[in-house]
Design a protein around this nucleic acid. Sequence first.
DNA 1: GTAACGTACAACCACATGGTTGTAAATACG
DNA 2: CGTATTTACAACCATGTGGTTGTACGTTAC
Lengths: 103, 103
Amino acid sequence: MDRIFRALADATRRDIVRRTLATEASVSDLAGAYDMSFAAVQKHVAVLEGAGLVTKRPHGRERIVRGNPDAIRRAQRLLDAYEQIWRDRIGRLDALLNEPPQK
Amino acid sequence: MDRIFRALADATRRDIVRRTLATEASVSDLAGAYDMSFAAVQKHVAVLEGAGLVTKRPHGRERIVRGNPDAIRRAQRLLDAYEQIWRDRIGRLDALLNEPPQK
DNA sequence: GTAACGTACAACCACATGGTTGTAAATACG
DNA sequence: CGTATTTACAACCATGTGGTTGTACGTTAC
Protein backbone atom coordinates (compact mmCIF):
# COMPACT_ATOMS: atom_id res chain seq x y z
CA MET A 1 0.00 0.00 0.00
CA ASP A 2 2.93 2.31 0.76
CA ARG A 3 4.16 1.76 -2.78
CA ILE A 4 0.78 2.44 -4.39
CA PHE A 5 0.39 5.82 -2.70
CA ARG A 6 4.06 6.63 -3.13
CA ALA A 7 3.77 5.95 -6.84
CA LEU A 8 0.69 8.16 -7.13
CA ALA A 9 2.44 11.04 -5.34
CA ASP A 10 4.02 12.28 -8.57
CA ALA A 11 2.20 14.14 -11.34
CA THR A 12 4.14 12.48 -14.16
CA ARG A 13 3.37 9.03 -12.81
CA ARG A 14 -0.30 9.85 -12.30
CA ASP A 15 -0.40 10.99 -15.91
CA ILE A 16 1.21 7.76 -17.08
CA VAL A 17 -1.42 5.81 -15.15
CA ARG A 18 -4.18 7.92 -16.66
CA ARG A 19 -2.85 7.46 -20.19
CA THR A 20 -2.27 3.75 -19.94
CA LEU A 21 -5.66 3.13 -18.39
CA ALA A 22 -7.19 4.77 -21.47
CA THR A 23 -4.83 3.35 -24.10
CA GLU A 24 -1.85 1.04 -24.05
CA ALA A 25 1.47 2.67 -24.90
CA SER A 26 5.06 1.58 -25.32
CA VAL A 27 7.69 3.02 -23.00
CA SER A 28 9.05 5.18 -25.81
CA ASP A 29 5.53 6.41 -26.65
CA LEU A 30 5.31 7.58 -23.07
CA ALA A 31 8.83 9.01 -23.09
CA GLY A 32 7.88 11.14 -26.08
CA ALA A 33 5.04 12.71 -24.12
CA TYR A 34 7.10 14.24 -21.34
CA ASP A 35 9.87 16.78 -21.22
CA MET A 36 12.47 14.54 -19.63
CA SER A 37 14.91 11.83 -20.64
CA PHE A 38 13.83 8.39 -21.78
CA ALA A 39 15.58 6.89 -18.74
CA ALA A 40 13.61 9.11 -16.35
CA VAL A 41 10.30 7.99 -17.86
CA GLN A 42 11.47 4.41 -17.82
CA LYS A 43 12.18 4.72 -14.10
CA HIS A 44 8.72 6.16 -13.49
CA VAL A 45 7.22 3.20 -15.31
CA ALA A 46 9.34 0.87 -13.18
CA VAL A 47 8.04 2.51 -9.99
CA LEU A 48 4.47 2.14 -11.22
CA GLU A 49 5.11 -1.48 -12.14
CA GLY A 50 6.59 -2.11 -8.68
CA ALA A 51 3.39 -0.74 -7.15
CA GLY A 52 1.23 -2.86 -9.45
CA LEU A 53 -0.36 0.21 -11.01
CA VAL A 54 0.75 -0.79 -14.51
CA THR A 55 1.87 -4.01 -16.16
CA LYS A 56 4.34 -4.42 -19.00
CA ARG A 57 3.90 -6.86 -21.84
CA PRO A 58 6.68 -7.50 -24.36
CA HIS A 59 5.76 -6.96 -28.00
CA GLY A 60 8.73 -7.34 -30.30
CA ARG A 61 11.37 -4.98 -29.08
CA GLU A 62 8.83 -2.78 -27.38
CA ARG A 63 7.30 -3.08 -23.92
CA ILE A 64 3.63 -2.26 -23.94
CA VAL A 65 2.45 -0.58 -20.75
CA ARG A 66 -1.14 -0.82 -19.57
CA GLY A 67 -2.75 0.59 -16.46
CA ASN A 68 -4.00 -1.88 -13.87
CA PRO A 69 -7.38 -0.95 -12.36
CA ASP A 70 -7.01 -3.51 -9.56
CA ALA A 71 -4.29 -1.50 -7.83
CA ILE A 72 -6.43 1.62 -8.17
CA ARG A 73 -9.29 -0.20 -6.51
CA ARG A 74 -7.11 -1.33 -3.64
CA ALA A 75 -6.32 2.29 -2.86
CA GLN A 76 -9.98 3.19 -3.22
CA ARG A 77 -11.00 0.52 -0.72
CA LEU A 78 -8.59 1.93 1.85
CA LEU A 79 -9.91 5.45 1.38
CA ASP A 80 -13.47 4.13 1.52
CA ALA A 81 -12.64 2.46 4.84
CA TYR A 82 -11.34 5.77 6.17
CA GLU A 83 -14.43 7.62 5.12
CA GLN A 84 -16.54 4.94 6.78
CA ILE A 85 -14.60 5.39 10.01
CA TRP A 86 -15.43 9.06 9.87
CA ARG A 87 -19.09 8.36 9.18
CA ASP A 88 -19.15 6.04 12.17
CA ARG A 89 -17.84 8.84 14.34
CA ILE A 90 -20.55 11.16 13.11
CA GLY A 91 -23.07 8.41 13.74
CA ARG A 92 -21.90 8.02 17.31
CA LEU A 93 -22.12 11.75 17.91
CA ASP A 94 -25.63 11.88 16.48
CA ALA A 95 -26.71 8.99 18.65
CA LEU A 96 -25.28 10.74 21.68
CA LEU A 97 -27.18 13.92 20.92
CA ASN A 98 -30.50 12.38 20.01
CA GLU A 99 -30.72 9.59 22.55
CA PRO A 100 -29.76 10.68 26.05
CA PRO A 101 -27.78 8.07 28.02
CA GLN A 102 -29.85 5.19 29.37
CA LYS A 103 -29.77 4.05 32.98
CA MET B 1 -2.60 16.19 -4.72
CA ASP B 2 1.05 15.18 -4.64
CA ARG B 3 1.10 15.99 -0.95
CA ILE B 4 -2.03 14.01 -0.16
CA PHE B 5 -0.71 10.81 -1.73
CA ARG B 6 2.77 11.44 -0.39
CA ALA B 7 1.37 11.77 3.11
CA LEU B 8 -0.63 8.55 2.76
CA ALA B 9 2.44 6.63 1.58
CA ASP B 10 3.55 5.90 5.14
CA ALA B 11 1.96 3.36 7.46
CA THR B 12 2.40 5.48 10.58
CA ARG B 13 0.75 8.47 8.93
CA ARG B 14 -2.12 6.35 7.61
CA ASP B 15 -2.65 5.07 11.13
CA ILE B 16 -2.69 8.61 12.51
CA VAL B 17 -5.32 9.53 9.92
CA ARG B 18 -7.37 6.46 10.80
CA ARG B 19 -7.19 7.21 14.52
CA THR B 20 -7.99 10.88 14.26
CA LEU B 21 -10.89 10.27 11.91
CA ALA B 22 -12.39 8.04 14.60
CA THR B 23 -11.43 10.07 17.66
CA GLU B 24 -9.62 13.34 18.23
CA ALA B 25 -6.25 13.02 19.92
CA SER B 26 -3.54 15.35 21.17
CA VAL B 27 -0.09 15.11 19.62
CA SER B 28 1.26 13.47 22.76
CA ASP B 29 -1.62 10.97 22.77
CA LEU B 30 -0.52 10.00 19.28
CA ALA B 31 3.16 9.98 20.22
CA GLY B 32 2.41 7.49 23.00
CA ALA B 33 0.91 5.09 20.48
CA TYR B 34 4.01 4.58 18.34
CA ASP B 35 7.48 3.28 19.01
CA MET B 36 9.34 6.40 17.99
CA SER B 37 10.26 9.76 19.44
CA PHE B 38 7.74 12.49 20.12
CA ALA B 39 9.45 14.68 17.54
CA ALA B 40 9.09 12.02 14.84
CA VAL B 41 5.35 11.73 15.46
CA GLN B 42 5.08 15.49 15.56
CA LYS B 43 6.71 15.66 12.13
CA HIS B 44 4.30 13.07 10.76
CA VAL B 45 1.40 15.16 12.03
CA ALA B 46 2.94 18.23 10.37
CA VAL B 47 3.15 16.38 7.05
CA LEU B 48 -0.48 15.32 7.35
CA GLU B 49 -1.48 18.87 8.23
CA GLY B 50 0.42 20.19 5.20
CA ALA B 51 -1.55 17.80 3.03
CA GLY B 52 -4.82 18.85 4.64
CA LEU B 53 -5.47 15.33 5.90
CA VAL B 54 -5.69 16.49 9.51
CA THR B 55 -6.30 19.80 11.25
CA LYS B 56 -4.94 20.98 14.59
CA ARG B 57 -6.93 22.90 17.14
CA PRO B 58 -5.31 24.39 20.22
CA HIS B 59 -6.79 23.35 23.57
CA GLY B 60 -4.83 24.67 26.49
CA ARG B 61 -1.25 23.59 26.02
CA GLU B 62 -2.30 20.68 23.85
CA ARG B 63 -2.99 20.58 20.12
CA ILE B 64 -5.94 18.42 19.30
CA VAL B 65 -5.59 16.60 15.99
CA ARG B 66 -8.59 15.57 13.96
CA GLY B 67 -8.79 13.79 10.62
CA ASN B 68 -10.21 15.75 7.70
CA PRO B 69 -12.51 13.70 5.47
CA ASP B 70 -12.47 16.35 2.72
CA ALA B 71 -8.87 15.59 1.81
CA ILE B 72 -9.70 11.88 1.73
CA ARG B 73 -12.55 12.58 -0.63
CA ARG B 74 -10.33 14.59 -2.95
CA ALA B 75 -8.08 11.57 -3.36
CA GLN B 76 -11.12 9.36 -3.85
CA ARG B 77 -12.42 11.55 -6.63
CA LEU B 78 -9.14 11.27 -8.49
CA LEU B 79 -9.11 7.50 -8.18
CA ASP B 80 -12.75 7.39 -9.23
CA ALA B 81 -11.86 9.38 -12.33
CA TYR B 82 -9.12 6.89 -13.15
CA GLU B 83 -11.45 3.97 -12.80
CA GLN B 84 -13.94 5.73 -15.03
CA ILE B 85 -11.26 6.18 -17.68
CA TRP B 86 -10.66 2.46 -17.56
CA ARG B 87 -14.37 1.70 -17.82
CA ASP B 88 -14.57 3.98 -20.85
CA ARG B 89 -11.82 1.99 -22.49
CA ILE B 90 -13.68 -1.24 -21.86
CA GLY B 91 -16.82 0.41 -23.21
CA ARG B 92 -15.03 1.37 -26.40
CA LEU B 93 -13.69 -2.14 -26.85
CA ASP B 94 -17.13 -3.63 -26.34
CA ALA B 95 -18.64 -1.25 -28.84
CA LEU B 96 -15.96 -2.19 -31.33
CA LEU B 97 -16.68 -5.89 -30.90
CA ASN B 98 -20.46 -5.72 -30.92
CA GLU B 99 -21.03 -3.12 -33.61
CA PRO B 100 -18.94 -3.65 -36.71
CA PRO B 101 -17.58 -0.44 -38.27
CA GLN B 102 -20.14 1.60 -40.23
CA LYS B 103 -19.58 2.83 -43.77
C1' DG C 1 25.28 -8.87 -41.68
C1' DT C 2 24.99 -4.02 -40.26
C1' DA C 3 22.66 -0.23 -38.73
C1' DA C 4 18.99 1.77 -36.17
C1' DC C 5 15.63 1.31 -32.55
C1' DG C 6 13.67 0.22 -27.93
C1' DT C 7 14.84 -1.05 -23.54
C1' DA C 8 17.40 -1.92 -19.37
C1' DC C 9 20.68 -0.74 -16.04
C1' DA C 10 24.59 1.39 -13.59
C1' DA C 11 26.76 5.45 -11.80
C1' DC C 12 26.28 9.85 -10.37
C1' DC C 13 24.20 14.27 -8.41
C1' DA C 14 21.11 17.43 -5.77
C1' DC C 15 17.64 17.27 -2.79
C1' DA C 16 13.80 15.34 0.11
C1' DT C 17 12.51 12.16 3.75
C1' DG C 18 12.25 9.74 8.23
C1' DG C 19 14.45 9.35 12.02
C1' DT C 20 17.39 11.15 16.05
C1' DT C 21 18.79 14.60 19.99
C1' DG C 22 18.69 19.01 22.05
C1' DT C 23 16.72 23.46 23.16
C1' DA C 24 13.19 26.87 23.89
C1' DA C 25 8.41 28.76 24.53
C1' DA C 26 3.72 28.40 26.31
C1' DT C 27 0.56 26.50 29.47
C1' DA C 28 -0.99 23.97 33.69
C1' DC C 29 -0.12 22.37 38.44
C1' DG C 30 1.13 22.55 43.43
C1' DC D 1 6.33 31.54 42.53
C1' DG D 2 8.81 27.32 40.56
C1' DT D 3 8.23 22.99 38.15
C1' DA D 4 6.43 19.70 35.02
C1' DT D 5 4.01 19.02 30.59
C1' DT D 6 3.15 19.79 25.78
C1' DT D 7 4.52 21.49 21.77
C1' DA D 8 7.63 23.55 18.27
C1' DC D 9 11.75 23.79 15.87
C1' DA D 10 16.70 23.47 14.57
C1' DA D 11 20.59 20.63 13.52
C1' DC D 12 22.19 16.45 12.16
C1' DC D 13 22.49 11.76 9.85
C1' DA D 14 21.47 7.82 6.76
C1' DT D 15 18.80 6.62 3.10
C1' DG D 16 15.62 7.23 -0.76
C1' DT D 17 14.04 9.89 -4.84
C1' DG D 18 13.95 12.16 -9.34
C1' DG D 19 16.66 13.49 -12.55
C1' DT D 20 20.93 13.09 -15.61
C1' DT D 21 24.44 10.59 -18.90
C1' DG D 22 26.60 6.56 -20.63
C1' DT D 23 26.73 1.75 -21.85
C1' DA D 24 25.09 -2.80 -23.14
C1' DC D 25 21.79 -5.94 -25.19
C1' DG D 26 17.89 -7.85 -27.87
C1' DT D 27 14.96 -6.97 -31.92
C1' DT D 28 13.68 -5.08 -36.28
C1' DA D 29 14.75 -3.21 -40.83
C1' DC D 30 17.58 -2.77 -44.84
